[in-house]
Design a protein around this nucleic acid. Structure first.
Lengths: 331, 331
DNA sequence: CTGAAAGCGCTTACAG
DNA sequence: CTGAAAGCGCTTACAG
């Protein structure tokens, strides 16, 4: 038994599919007694038959598909996506009556024209949110151009058609505020993963730049500590925290540096947040209670909303270049 | 300028859309010189016009949609999804030429018939993977039934149409192996979140049951420690680790108990893994290096593959009840 | 090898 | 208030 259609309902009730369509979509409201009764009957038969409108037929009629692809790489170095980011995008799209389709691309398939991912060769989505940080395959940009696919970038700092986090300004401002609040010895800790090839992506360079600018502007000396992950981070941090002039505020860009920082602090008897305040920048953590941390966090919802808003505009006017939207971090 | 169609290409080249369709889809291969040349021309014009096949038109013709919805709740207590689970599902679906559509439901919309989520009232997906652990809205099950939507559950222990992790057997076996390897004092630590209402979901009860069974079968006494999260977990754990008969192996169900465990161990000078081994059950962590832990982990890929395989069968024969597939945890 | 015809399921303007 | 007609873009038998 296959899927039931307007036709099936119409046959049972003894009307045409047109009437059924109108009743079910609410295009008009029946007012006469006879029509009312018939409308009720139509709705009932629809339920009995388990009718659901076929979105493909509807989409074809309307020319609007109602689907947006979230395009990313299978390579986590190129595209990362936290659950909360996905969630925020999903919700922002829902507000625009759009569905979210996941498209994780194997970058190898972007090397030749022969085996391209379907999302790029088929007309199945109205637009794309593209979550490539770096090493963007040239073919990807080329296909978007060629097919004039409305696209918005969500992890690149570009002039146009993008949203990104305003690390530099947000961190500069946050650090300046802390200086005003009395902190003088403020350090920043970075993780240096042996396997991790450092890049010049703005999400790595801008936070540091913002911190250093704030310190220098206040006549203070920036202190950046690169802890070598899984090597001797504890001794490095212990050294930092037992120094005579130990910092009173520690900025950490990465939630994974928190464990060594907290362990070291606990070990040497430095109390968080009484003796040492910690400012976590970026993704949250349930590792330690929020009250113990200053958390300068991503505003996922605002980024998602901005991205979707841009994309909707872009879909309306695909040719137009839209000014990018930097999103401040927030407390 | 709207989207180009087969018709546009046909007009330019001077053939019918039928021929264009056949050339682009490769339904036949041109052999004659003239046909070859024309085919080449068609392909070229298609590229020039940025043609992409309209999947809605194709889907309507074929009756197959090629989309699967991942249905979950917006309430994280009912549905949780780690990025790696999403990834695994996406990949498993790709192997079947299916796209993944995200559908996070607001459970409030499932309380009345009037404002149902679109994924349930429209015919837009061939089937659903349903990620509800508990408090499953009756309306959800009812609609699946009524519309005969092929559905597979991925977080429920049911006889039919489900995949789930075989905690009980896997943990029992793992603990038994550790006992054979010489461990006698094996404890299990649970997190007790003040806000967290404990449930009888199998993912909470089965791990403990498996552990206790293994211990009792070996004539050993199970020790379950419920640490009160953010209250006094450190003193509880410190007490456990300074006991004369302190455990040599600690099972932890939750990566978030790792931080207090490690901090406590570090503080009292118990070395991991030399003095104390830790077995993490479930999701991984990048908190500490994998070499220091025994990690009995989820096999996301196998679960995803099993779920997709079940769903594909279900789509072929929607009426049939399919035997559920328990998935062992793995090292 | 190519085309004319039919149809997938729906909706909308037009006519009654 | 309801229906007959047309069409969205594609593909597949059927005929040449």
């Amino acid at each position: 038994m296959s899927h039931s259609t307007l036709h099936d309902i119409a046959n049972r009730v003894g009307v045409t599919p047109v009437t059924v369509s109108r009743v079910l979509s609410g295009t008009y409201k029946a007012k006469r007694a006879g029509a009312l009764k018939r409308a009720e009957q139509i709705r009932q038969v629809a339920v009995e038959l388990g009718y659901r409108v076929n979105v493909h037929a509807r989409a074809m009629r309307h020319g609007r598909l109602g689907n947006i692809a979230l395009v990313m790489s299978k390579d986590p170095a190129r595209s990362l996506l936290h659950e909360c980011e996905l969630t925020a995008l999903h919700d922002a799209l829902l507000d625009e009556q759009m569905n979210l389709v996941i498209a994780r691309l194997d970058d190898k398939t972007l090397e030749s024209e022969s085996d391209l991912p379907r999302v790029l060769t088929e007309y199945a989505v109205d637009g794309m949110l593209i979550n490539y940080k770096k090493n963007i395959p040239p073919m990807l940009e080329q296909l978007i151009e060629r097919h004039r696919i409305p696209a918005v970038w969500i992890a690149r700092k570009r002039k146009h058609d993008a949203t990104y986090y305003a690390y530099r300004n947000s961190i500069k401002k946050a650090v300046t505020d802390q200086i005003k609040a009395g902190h003088r010895r403020i350090a920043m800790v970075f993780k240096l993963n042996p396997n991790h090839v450092s890049t010049d992506h703005y999400s790595e360079t801008d936070p540091r730049a913002g911190y250093e600018k704030a310190m220098l502007d206040a006549g203070l000396k920036p202190q950046c500590l690169q802890v070598r992950w899984n090597v001797d981070e504890l001794s490095q941090l212990t050294a930092l925290l037992t120094r005579k002039n130990r910092p009173t505020l520690l900025l950490t860009r990465d939630q994974h540096t928190l464990l060594p920082v907290l362990t070291a602090a606990y070990h040497v008897g430095v109390k968080v947040p009484d003796d040492l305040q910690i400012m976590l920048i970026g993704h949250g953590t349930r590792l330690i209670p929020a009250t113990d941390l200053k958390h300068l966090r991503y505003d996922y919802d605002q980024l998602a909303e901005a991205a979707v808003k841009l994309l909707v505009e872009k879909i309306k006017a695909p040719q137009q270049l839209l000014k990018s939207r930097p999103i401040p971090l927030c407390w």
